[in-house]
């Protein structure tokens, strides 16, 4: 088995109590190797952000384990836990909400440096802040140091968020819809910057998005995991997922997604699902979560037994579906 930088085993997370209880993430297992990029794709409410927060250590799993550099995250001693927390950073979706509005860019970036004793004194902190701003292309640096978040555009704020994540030299970054709130024309430059960080600094990425096209662009050399109502239903390399999807849900997504190319998008033949309704987390269907909508539904099987993620074909293509056989 390959050594993963971070891995999840049967990760489950529930919210609420008693009758209000919902399972947002249900038995998710996956691993990300060092320097790799894994994209988590799915629709709103499928549990992708919760999975990201679990991997970043911001939420404790209800059951299941997370291992970082081979160590179980939640049972290790305090010192190793601190190291894990420093090694894993998250970039949130909304750069308007994730930066303190009353702090300048310099304050935002120097606080973690000083707090974690990563620099000797304020002068060195300033040097490091300047360096970080250069890494995220906020130049000339002097223009940005004394600015407050409200004086920056959405794209610039998100660059500050990235710079803040980099202050502690993380080895793993969870980017949760990091470019979704940014305008189309600026999105690409942000994505390219993140790709560059991955190459230059060897940072491992979990890239969470609802946008398949962005996932494809960012993770072309990596893998994509498709989530549906709390579970991973398909996991494989990006080109394989785009060109040879196996799970009926992934196929339906690919056939439905509108494309910024009139011929391509108008030639698509959407797959008809048996139902339009996304199941409520409070009232999940038994067996396979997708069975009430699935065109391949088989009575007595799909509505009874929940399929497990299993390998089909070669190259580690994994699918959770009874009707797909390798």
């Amino acid at each position: 088995m390959t050594e993963y930088l971070i891995e999840a085993h049967n990760l489950t997370r529930q919210f609420g109590r008693r009758r209000e209880r919902v399972t947002a993430v249900d038995d998710v297992s996956l691993g990300i190797s060092e320097g790799e990029v894994l994209c988590l794709v799915g629709e709103s409410g499928c549990g992708k952000t919760t999975t990201g927060k679990l991997l970043a250590g911001l939420l404790k799993p209800s059951s299941g384990r997370i291992r970082y550099q081979g160590q179980d995250v939640w049972t290790q001693d305090k010192e190793s836990f601190r190291k894990y927390r420093l090694g894993v950073q998250i970039i949130h979706q909304d750069p308007y909400a994730s930066l303190n509005p009353s702090h300048t860019v310099h304050q935002i970036l120097s606080a973690p440096l000083l707090h974690h004793n990563l620099v000797n004194g304020r002068r060195q902190a300033r040097e490091r802040v300047v360096e970080l701003l250069q890494i995220v292309d906020l130049t000339p640096v002097e223009d940005f140091l004394t600015k407050y978040p409200h004086q920056l555009s959405g794209g610039q704020r998100q660059r500050v968020s990235v710079a803040r994540a980099l202050t502690v030299n993380p080895s793993f970054i969870v980017a949760d819809e990091a470019v979704s709130m940014v305008d189309v024309s600026i999105r690409v430059s942000l994505l390219k910057m993140l790709s560059r960080l991955r190459m230059q600094l060897g940072v491992t990425f979990l890239f969470i998005t609802h946008d398949l096209a962005l996932a494809k662009f960012f993770a072309w050399e990596g893998r994509i995991a498709v989530m549906y109502v709390g579970s991973v239903v398909e996991l494989t390399s990006t080109p394989e997922l785009i060109n040879n999807a196996q799970h009926p849900y992934t196929k339906a997504l690919l056939a439905a997604v509108p494309e910024a190319d009139p011929n391509l998008t108008r030639r698509k033949k959407p797959i008809t699902l048996r139902s339009q309704d996304i199941p409520s987390l409070r009232n999940l269907p038994p067996g396979c979560r997708f069975h009430p909508r699935c065109p391949l539904f088989e009575e007595g099987l799909c509505d009874r037994v929940a399929p497990k993620l299993k390998s089909v074909g070669e190259n580690g293509h994994q699918v959770a579906c009874h009707r797909v056989t390798g």
């Binding site: 555009s153 610039q156 600026i186 390219k192 096209a213 662009f217 690919l254 494309e259």
Partner: peptide, 24 residues
Amino acid sequence: LGLIRAVPTVTGDFQDLISIPGSP
């Protein structure tokens, strides 16, 4: 032209994307 070159497709060929410099 800039907008079109900045938007990826899912099922089309993989193409490099170019962003528009600056902001609105």
